Computed example of a mutant assay.
Amino acid sequence: MDDTATVALYLARRDTYAALLNAVDDELRIAWHRCDGRYTTPDGQPDEAAAVGDVDRAYVNSRAKFNVIDLEGVGPVKEARALVERAAALHKGGGTEPNWADFKRAREAFVTAASRYLKTLLPEAGH
């Protein structure tokens, strides 16, 4: 593969990994807002239906971004799967006690693995 094709592959995978991170970060934001009581009806009552609707949309988006990585079957697939699972777990039990630490560890592991993998795709300098 020539350098142009290698760089194109690098950029495509980088964008795929960033899309997954953005999707799971959206799930994190929803979990945070849910715990913080920001899902309310106009009269100030908890609005669990709105929270669940946002959770469902975010979950579908995260899974769609993960599926691209899963189908390729190369790179940080295991770490991506763990990240998506940890993001989904933020919403278990009505989202009242999300495990922020597990999510953060899974996110960091994915970023590290993705970065390491992406570096292997870059053409070596000087040729």
Rank of each mutant, 00 (worst) to 15 (best):
L20D: 04
G44L: 08
L28R: 08
W32Q: 07
L20T: 15
A19P: 07
I69H: 06
A50W: 12
A8K: 03
Q45S: 10
A58D: 10
R38M: 15
E72V: 12
R57M: 13
L9E: 02
A8G: 00
T4P: 00
R63L: 06
V52R: 04
G37H: 01
R29I: 04
V52Q: 05
Y39F: 15
D43G: 02
I30L: 03
A19N: 13
Y39R: 06
N61C: 07
E72P: 01
V60L: 07
L20Q: 06
C35M: 13
A19Q: 12
T6K: 12
I30T: 06
G53I: 03
A12P: 05
V55Q: 14
K65P: 02
D36L: 15
E48T: 12
D43Q: 05
L11P: 00
T4N: 01
R63N: 10
V52S: 05
L71H: 14
W32D: 05
D70M: 11
G37F: 02
P42S: 10
V7A: 00
V60S: 11
A58V: 03
D54V: 01
I69S: 05
I69K: 04
A64M: 14
A18Q: 10
I69Y: 11
E72A: 10
D43I: 09
Q45N: 08
A64H: 06
A12W: 10
L9C: 02
R14E: 15
K65L: 04
T40W: 05
R57N: 12
P42Q: 07
